[in-house]
Design a binder for these strands. Structure first.
Lengths: 358, 358
DNA sequence: TTGTAGGCGTTATCAC
DNA sequence: GTGATAACGCCTACAA
């Protein structure tokens, strides 16, 4: 493919072996080679053998670019995520990739860091590669991106989004109920006896920020607690975001006794920051996260969190692409996934409570 | 691309816009469109504007498959790793991908789980896609794979391997000195006063098993300790491998007082298993790992480990590919990366030592 | 400046 | 069974 910005490059020196080479070697026509390669009927056994040997000997592999060009179908999917270094995504991508591999598809991986320009660049790049389908987790404020994406969907290209709120007539959406999850988590803390609960919010441009904040608020309200604005700090999905958020919350005049973090990574960051401040978790402050990444069970204290079937969501994403390829006129739909509360040691009754009890 | 196993699929219903469509819309020839698109000189300003508008309006993006076919150059790289869910690899892949993106390249991601058949399948798939270069971390026992890979290299296709021991005339190798790293780690433990040190080995088929084991042995020998076979347990790079290994070692009649794990993940697994057995780290047993993944600093106790510049190694891998594309006759070379010992709280003097001292 | 011609490698459709 | 022909979309060269 070309990109005007890129350096000019020499092609490899030797030609790869083409179907013509094989045909010549086996002294048959190229369409015979093609037929043998694709196990089509109508070729005599001796010829078949001869061709097979030639294929073997010359290590012939058909040029997929040519095949795809002709077939108008590339057998590739584009996966656009914020960053593969966010431990939530490897499982998801692995799910996609495993499904893709079984169906003979390959995966293009793109990391956007949620930057609008990068998202659009990558989308164009994937379009250039004529990918058969798109799986994207994108910045919700990137309306230009969404416009292009939905145009693709309108033109019957399979598009799967991770948790986008905008519903498109054709694009599928993978979704977990973030509102309910946040509600559950807050409820868990309230039931433990916490009354001052902080929230380190997801990044405002992510798909989950509003839902989790809403669910959180709703739980407090339902159980008669007031939502104190100074307990809601804007945050993000990184360890640093968690450290910052926890540091801020711990510095409040009357600090919360529990914190719901944007995700497990932020929760882990929060714990490490609190340790640095000499605040013990969960004795002095409870911490909870979202995602149940592998590490959640292994940090100290192990994290209370909301588990979601990340790998299966990846698989489902690829399956949805196949499905849309098979019936291009099917309607987009929301695919919901169950989440569950996993209680571990990072949450406990607040100190006040325990002193009362003991 | 085709894979005989895969389902038959209908192509999307609507055609994408081609250069011909744009030419028609702007009432010029297709090569004028091409020239405008690639900012070539010799087009009058009004025409240029008109074409630009048509490109804009029709959302034209050149079909990269056709371009690549013609240019004999796909601007893609294949990345074949055991699994992106191993937290060592996201940083590495990110390094590759960032470099690739800057140069207008895209990345195919393949997870082999170190399974020889999968490795070969993926290699063929990448060949189909006519990737411009390969970055591979493969199972060293997979000689068939290596043969195909080195044939590619011989034919001037850029090949970068992660720590393969086999040196090929053209393939570059990214390497850290695993022998020295293991030596350093063992030395660190010995200097703390440990005399009974266990090793949870990397998987036998990985590139690092022999080197790390050798370095480990060499250190013990140099400092006059005997290498007890019951302290060397075969392991792997997962949390479970670490749990198993630590459980085994802890069950020895005379358990070691320190363990060097295959990597950080195994070390984290070891710590969790030991916690489960009521063995405190580092008080009763010291643990050390390799890689210095993000989590290493955040688990409890924070891990002593060997840091390596994973992201930069990924960047270097892509740069090496570009370099080989530019000068296809250049010789393969080994690119070495520095590692460093990071001492954290998971290693401490053995209990005996401390009781003597105090 | 623009049109015409040829080819990248593969596959499909004929008629032989 | 095979050979000829066309097409996928793009690009380069050469001629008009």
């Amino acid at each position: 493919m070309q990109a005007s910005s890129a350096v000019e490059i020499m092609p490899p020196v030797t030609r790869r072996t083409t179907i013509t080479d094989v045909a010549r070697a086996a002294r048959v026509s190229i369409q015979t080679v093609s037929a043998v390669f694709h196990d089509k009927p109508g070729i005599s056994d001796p010829t078949r053998q001869r061709v097979r040997r030639a294929i073997e000997r010359l290590h012939y592999v058909p040029n997929g670019l040519a095949s795809s060009l002709r077939a108008r179908h590339s057998r590739t999917v584009g996966v656009l995520i914020p960053s593969i270094t966010n431990p939530y995504f490897p499982d998801f991508v692995r799910g996609i990739e495993d499904g893709a591999h079984r169906a003979g598809y390959s995966v293009f991986l793109c990391n956007s860091d949620h930057q609008p320009e990068k998202e659009i660049e990558y989308l164009q790049l994937l379009r250039q590669h004529a990918v058969s389908g798109y799986v994207v987790a994108y910045n919700l404020n990137n309306l230009d991106f969404e416009k292009i994406l939905f145009q693709l969907a309108t033109h019957h290209t399979p598009v799967i989004t991770l948790g986008s709120r905008q519903i498109h007539e054709r694009a599928h959406v993978l979704r977990t109920d973030d509102r309910a999850s946040a509600f559950t988590l807050a409820q868990h803390l309230i039931e433990l006896g916490h009354e001052r609960i902080g929230l380190i919010q997801p990044p405002a441009e992510s798909s989950v920020c509003r839902d989790r904040t809403e669910g959180f608020r709703a739980a407090l309200k339902k159980f008669g607690l007031t939502v104190r604005p100074e307990y809601l700090v804007p945050g993000g999905f990184t360890i640093e975001d968690g450290q910052d958020g926890a540091t801020q919350l711990a510095g409040r005049q009357e600090p919360p006794t529990a914190i719901v973090a944007a995700n497990d990574l932020a929760a882990i960051g929060a714990i490490s920051a609190l340790k640095g401040l000499g605040i013990r978790v969960p004795e002095r402050m409870s911490i909870a996260g979202f995602d149940d990444i592998r590490m959640a069970a292994l940090v100290d204290p192990p994290l209370t969190t909301i588990a979601q079937p990340t790998y299966r969501m990846g698989q489902a994403a690829f399956e949805a692409i196949l499905e849309q390829l098979e019936s291009p006129n099917s309607r987009g739909r929301v695919i919901n996934f169950e989440t569950s509360l996993v209680v571990r040691r990072s949450t406990a009754p607040p100190a006040s409570q325990r002193s009362i009890e003991s």
